[in-house]
Simulated scan of single mutants.
Amino acid sequence: MSLDTLNWTAVCAVDEILPNTGVCALVEGRHVAVFRVGPDRFFAIDNIDPKSGASVLSRGLVGSLGEQIVVASPLYKQHYDLSTGACLEQPELSVRAHAARVEAGRVLVRLAS
């Protein structure tokens, strides 16, 4: 095992996430929302909705606002940039964005520091 793979956690097979949807994974005790956008782009952000405290962002609607790929919270409808975790309507509600990649047909996540 290389040092590069030590900080990555396999969360599921690529085919377990339908395009333009998300799933929730527990990574090192943290609730993470992992999204598949189109056929081969993957993103990961915290799954906890900061306004409600509920673990629901993975159930939000994926779309775009201008050039930004976002997920809309299913509870209060704020939009979170999947690349950065920034909340577009209320920056104080931003979440952490994590690295996501595919290796050997599995989606892997590395938590942000």
Rank of each mutant, 00 (worst) to 15 (best):
N20R: 04
E103N: 09
I45K: 04
S58G: 10
V70H: 00
G38F: 03
R110V: 05
S73K: 02
L61N: 05
A10G: 02
A97R: 06
V34W: 00
V27Y: 08
S94M: 11
E89R: 08
C12D: 09
V71Q: 00
Q68P: 03
E89A: 14
V95K: 03
P19T: 01
A33H: 05
W8I: 08
S83C: 15
N47P: 12
R101A: 07
V27I: 13
R36I: 14
M1A: 12
G63A: 06
N7Q: 13
K77M: 09
Y80F: 15
S55A: 07
D40A: 15
A104F: 07
P74H: 01
L75F: 03
G38Q: 09
A72M: 09
P19N: 05
R30Y: 11
L57F: 14
A44H: 00
D40F: 08
V71M: 02
L57E: 07
L75G: 10
G63Q: 04
I69P: 11
T9P: 05
R106D: 07
G85S: 13
L111C: 09
T84W: 04
A13K: 14
S2N: 13
Q78N: 14
R110G: 04
V107N: 08
D46K: 01
L18M: 13
M1T: 06
T21D: 05
A10Q: 12
E28H: 13
